[in-house]
């Protein structure tokens, strides 16, 4: 069975470590916040200028001056700080964020990522995504492995305009956890009940499968 969005987030959350500063993008990534293990402390960075993002507010707590990068109303966690956009991106571009999780349309074997534009169709802009992929060392891309029509999103070469070049090393899809190394995809784990053959069939770029591939533990 392919993972649900929540299960993808749940598996990503296993990569969190105590004391991590983490930036979660839009789409599946914010769900990761729901699965932070109780025994570690993680601080969420929101690139509009908040470190220490808390949960959504109650009706009574709503404050128009307090939103996240998805423009959603939020609260501040204890120990939060507020800063301007240049300071926020100094954190990101300066490599101070420990883990970045973001979505994508396509990823390829050279670690290229396309996530911000479909020419002629979707031209909304990159927001902070280009800064995040260029500035972070530790990035996990979350996406579905293939389109609804079975077209792979893990390619030999991205076809859409790039968000970043050679910057992605880990991809977690609804079918597999994959590492990108030496110009190839490497299969690390498969979703429970999903066969290696299925993953190979839906992976367009070269996929290395070595030894037994374990199922993810959720």
């Amino acid at each position: 069975m392919a993972l649900s969005r929540e299960q993808i987030a749940q598996r990503v959350a296993q990569e969190l470590k105590d004391g991590y500063y983490v930036n979660l993008g839009i789409g599946i990534p914010p769900l990761v916040a729901n699965f932070i293990p109780d025994d570690i402390e993680v601080m969420l960075q929101s690139e509009n200028g908040l470190l220490g993002m808390g949960q959504f507010p109650t009706e009574d707590e709503i404050d128009a001056d307090l939103i996240n990068a998805g423009k959603q109303t939020v609260t501040m966690a204890a120990g939060a700080s507020i800063f301007d956009s240049a300071e926020s991106f100094a954190m990101i571009r300066g490599g101070h964020v420990d883990l970045t999780v973001l979505g994508a349309f396509e990823v390829d074997v050279n670690g290229n990522i396309a996530s911000y534009m479909i020419p002629g169709k979707l031209i909304k802009g990159m927001g902070g995504a280009m800064d995040l992929v260029a500035g972070a060392d530790n990035i996990i891309v979350t996406m579905t492995h293939a389109s609804k029509h079975g077209v792979s999103k893990l390619l030999s070469n991205c076809t859409l305009p790039l968000t970043g070049k050679g910057c992605i090393k880990k991809v977690l899809t609804d079918l597999a956890f994959i590492e990108i190394r030496d110009g190839k995809f490497h299969l690390l784990e498969r979703a429970p009940g999903v066969s290696v053959e299925e993953i190979i069939k839906l992976t367009d770029g070269e996929l290395v499968v070595s030894g037994e591939i374990a199922e993810m533990k959720l």
Binding site: Q55, P57, I62, T73
Partner: peptide
């Protein structure tokens, strides 16, 4: 006016 673009809330405790 301070309009809110994405009004997201959690239930009150």
């Amino acid at each position: 006016e301070k309009r809110i673009e994405q009004r997201t809330t959690r239930p009150a405790d």
